[in-house]
Computed example of a mutant assay.
Amino acid sequence: MSQITTITLFRYKGFWNKVWAFGMMQFAHRRLGDVKGLQFYKLWGSGKENFDPRPDWSVYALLQIWNTEQDAELFFQTSNLISSYQKCTTENWTLYLKNIISRGEWSGSNPFQKSGTLDASNPRIVAITRATIKTRLLLTFWRYVPKSQGYLNNNPGLIYTKGFGEVPIKQMATFSVWKDKKYLDKFAYQNKPHVGAIQNTRSLKWYKEELFSRFQPYRSIGTWGGDNPLPQLNRD
């Protein structure tokens, strides 16, 4: 038995489907609270492209941490909640993830456990960062974000990225999928604007709470933008 993480992205079209999606940011909690094998979850809204803090009403996400892969499979195969999401979305994409490393805290603790069953032949990597921004530094932080993400969208190693959040403006997360660790490390530690953001994080102490984590994606189910972004990991 080994902990795994799943992240599911949902895309909506049409006014009433988007209203439904926004409502589920509140109402889904009741149905997620007693799911078998579910250790931890977060419902995310998203921001516009290029990490713009304004909301993107068409994209939402559900991050879940499971006791086992079997618990996750049972949920996705039998849950009425997931069926409801699928009926209202135009497409959805689920990644199964094994944790490589995780530092920091999320809601007071670090929920991710390092996996002991990583596949050395699989180079794909997912990065998730999450932070609660101090209220008095919100304006300073969001002024710097576009600069810090320079070179990201044109990065040849980037497969997908999106900004998400539990609470608009104040609690933010980044989700990115990369071809391999080399590309991710080059962006994180050699791209000057991003390095500057790291330095500002230390000097200005933007965050009340932060967490940095990396994962190995090993299953990719569904579509995003009309295709499966990681078709080599599609076992269905």
Rank of each mutant, 00 (worst) to 15 (best):
V126I: 12
F51L: 12
Q149M: 14
S121G: 14
N153V: 03
Q70I: 06
I65G: 07
N153R: 00
R202T: 00
L43V: 02
L204I: 09
I159A: 09
L95P: 02
W142D: 07
P146A: 00
I128C: 11
T223E: 05
Q171C: 09
S109T: 09
Q77I: 06
N234L: 07
Y218M: 05
L74T: 12
N110L: 07
N99T: 14
F164W: 01
K48G: 11
Y218E: 06
T140A: 10
R103D: 08
Q216T: 01
Y85L: 14
F175S: 04
K179V: 09
G163W: 05
K162M: 01
Y12C: 13
I4R: 01
L158S: 03
G157A: 04
Y12V: 08
I125R: 00
T89A: 13
R219E: 01
T68H: 05
A120Q: 14
K208M: 10
P229M: 04
N17P: 06
R124D: 08
F75R: 00
A21D: 00
L139K: 13
N154R: 05
G225R: 04
N155C: 01
I221Q: 06
D56P: 11
R130P: 00
R235L: 09
D34L: 10
Y96F: 15
Y60M: 08
F27T: 15
I125T: 10
D236V: 10
T223F: 01
Q26Y: 15
S148C: 06
G45I: 00
K134C: 13
Y85A: 15
Q86R: 15
P55L: 02
H29I: 07
K186W: 09
V59W: 00
K48H: 06
Y144K: 14
P229V: 06
S220Q: 08
Q232K: 15
T78E: 11
F15H: 11
L139G: 12
W106T: 04
S83D: 15
A28R: 04
P231K: 07
Q190D: 12
T117I: 13
W44I: 05
Y218R: 01
T8H: 11
N99C: 15
Y144G: 07
F40I: 03
V167K: 03
W44V: 04
W224K: 03
W93F: 15
L204N: 12
A28G: 07
K87V: 10
S83N: 14
L63T: 00
N99S: 15
P217H: 01
N67S: 10
F51V: 01
K87E: 14
H194R: 03
